[in-house]
């Protein structure tokens, strides 16, 4: 079946089997391997993408449901000229990543969170991150990064 949607701000039309998951389409056919698959029970959050601005797990999202929608992957966060998104910069500044595998999902989750909650508490943030598993950082610097990134997105120093 043919599905047309927006992917990282560009219109695309794909011809897929109706059972195709978005994570597989991105990784196998669109050469967007930044979206990772870390589990098979929708628990880990490594595969998060923004769907019309809201974070969703692309491992459990059928491409067939995307007609007319807008998808942003981790590759779509930075400026086309390479300038990092404020959340990406905050992760770099605050050592919010180690092996990098959970990082794309964390960034997507963080951007969605910052859009919903411009002035969060750390407790609210830790609760929000319940759907993202990281094995390296103990979450401490991820929390620090997202607090800083949220402030930066809303232009607070």
């Amino acid at each position: 079946m043919k599905v047309s949607f927006t992917l990282n701000a560009k219109p695309v039309t794909v011809d897929v089997d109706p059972a195709t998951r978005l994570a597989d389409l991105l990784r196998e056919d669109m050469d967007l391997t930044g979206t990772h698959i870390g589990c098979d029970t929708s628990q880990c959050g490594a595969c998060l993408v923004l769907l019309d601005g809201e974070s969703v797990k692309s491992c459990t999202l059928l491409v067939a449901s995307l007609e007319g929608r807008g998808v942003t992957t981790v590759e779509g966060l930075a400026d086309p000229d390479g300038g990092l998104h404020p959340m990406q910069t905050a992760f770099r500044e605050n050592h919010g990543l180690q092996c990098g595998f959970c990082t794309p999902g964390m960034l997507i989750s963080a951007v969605d969170f910052a859009n919903r909650n411009p002035d969060p508490t750390e407790t609210e943030l830790r609760h929000w991150l319940e759907g993202n598993i990281c094995r390296c950082t103990g979450y401490q610097n991820i929390v620090k990064s997202i607090m800083a990134g949220t402030a930066a997105m809303h232009q607070r120093a």
Binding site: T33, G34, G100
Partner: peptide
């Protein structure tokens, strides 16, 4: 210093075996 390896991971350009 900020880590040299960060930018590729932050932009989805890490290259893991499954990629």
């Amino acid at each position: 210093p900020k880590r040299k390896e960060d930018v590729r991971f932050l932009t989805g350009r890490g290259r893991y075996v499954s990629d």
